[in-house]
């Protein structure tokens, strides 16, 4: 019975507009996909619906693993809550620290009108948040220890909107920490400078820019519906097709398009790859990665094994170097 009582909480993200898989965003994504397939790709409505709700995708081993991970990872939210407490500590610490900058008085810009402050804050928070997502995502691919974790997400051979939850719990912790740091820094800084005028421009309680990202089909990036933007726009915003390309097994697509909403970071740091001219993509990992699309045991435990192996190798390497140095001396 107790388990049944917990069920609504388990699926609360579908009813929460702050989350990408909010049912409203999912419904809009279906409409966008339908529009794209019928109007741009000129397929019939029936064919379009068949492709959007493709059974081979949604009932694939990979997708079923997504669903299981979605449920199992809820347990790990218990570990996330204490970190939100640390956000208050970080923010208060930074707020206190700012007082030590004698050239900058608290509420030095209280004269600025509220609308300007709100726009500035909304924009800054969005940009900082999006950039930090790009950076952390890049690191997840760059460093072997982090890649051992992030590989779980990339092991998906079929993409569904739930794939956004296909994340190793330790990676979830890192991503939460990222959010904690971004908000923990931005909020006290703005509050220090602008005082109580600081607030976010929100729609249904969400940063308006994040809301735009979601209503414009953020869920489609984890689907087979390959929606491309004009090349100029793909320099600014990551299209669903660009993100799908990020999941491709083809070597030329490796380490491309790390961006979340904005493509400008990829553009600036030379990891941008436009979607035009790409044929049918195959998602997942190279066989050499030794991962699995559907085995939960592999998905949850292999990262620990790999991280242990990497660290052991590092320690041995360091030990060997020390020994060589010692013999020389």
């Amino acid at each position: 019975m107790e388990f049944l009582e917990q069920l609504p909480a388990l699926f609360s993200d579908f009813a929460n507009p702050k989350k990408r898989i909010f049912f409203g965003y999912l419904a809009l994504s279906v409409l966008i996909a339908l529009g794209w397939l019928t109007l741009v790709r000129k397929t019939s409505i029936a064919e379009a619906l068949r492709r959007i709700f493709d059974r081979r995708v949604f009932f694939s081993g990979s997708a079923i693993a997504d669903y299981k991970i979605f449920v199992i990872n809820r347990i790990f939210t218990f570990f996330i809550s204490p970190m939100l407490l640390s956000q208050v500590a970080i923010a208060t610490g930074i707020y206190f620290f700012l007082h030590s900058l004698d050239f900058l008085n608290p509420a030095a810009f209280t004269g600025v009108n509220q609308a300007t402050v709100v726009v500035l804050f909304t924009l800054t928070l969005f940009l900082f948040d999006d950039f930090s997502k790009y950076l952390v995502h890049r690191w997840m691919h760059r460093f072997p220890v982090l890649w051992a974790l992030h590989r779980v997400h990339h092991s998906a051979t079929e993409l569904t909107p739930v794939t956004v939850y296909r994340v190793h719990p330790l990676e979830g912790v890192l991503y939460t920490l990222r959010g904690v740091v971004v908000q923990g820094v931005t909020i006290p800084t703005f509050y220090y400078l602008f005082g109580s005028a600081v607030s976010l421009y929100t729609v249904v309680g969400v940063n308006v820019l994040v809301f735009i990202f979601h209503v414009s089909g953020s869920n489609l990036r984890h689907t087979h519906i390959s929606i491309s933007y004009w090349p100029w726009l793909e320099h600014l915003l990551i299209s669903p097709a660009q993100h799908q390309l990020h999941h491709s097994v083809a070597e030329r697509h490796f380490d491309k398009n790390f961006g979340a909403a904005l493509a400008i970071w990829d553009w600036m740091f030379h990891s941008l790859h436009l979607s035009s001219g790409e044929g049918e993509l195959v998602f997942g990992l190279d066989a050499s990665e030794g991962s699995s699309a559907s085995s939960l045991k592999t998905l949850y435990l292999q990262p620990f094994h790999d991280i242990f192996r990497i660290l052991r190798r590092r320690v041995r390497g360091f030990y060997g170097l020390a020994q060589r140095l010692m013999t020389r001396v």
Partner: peptide, 11 residues
């Protein structure tokens, strides 16, 4: 007011 905004979503 800004907590739980989906900052943990992974791409």
């Amino acid at each position: 007011s800004l907590s739980g905004d989906g900052g943990a979503e992974t791409d």
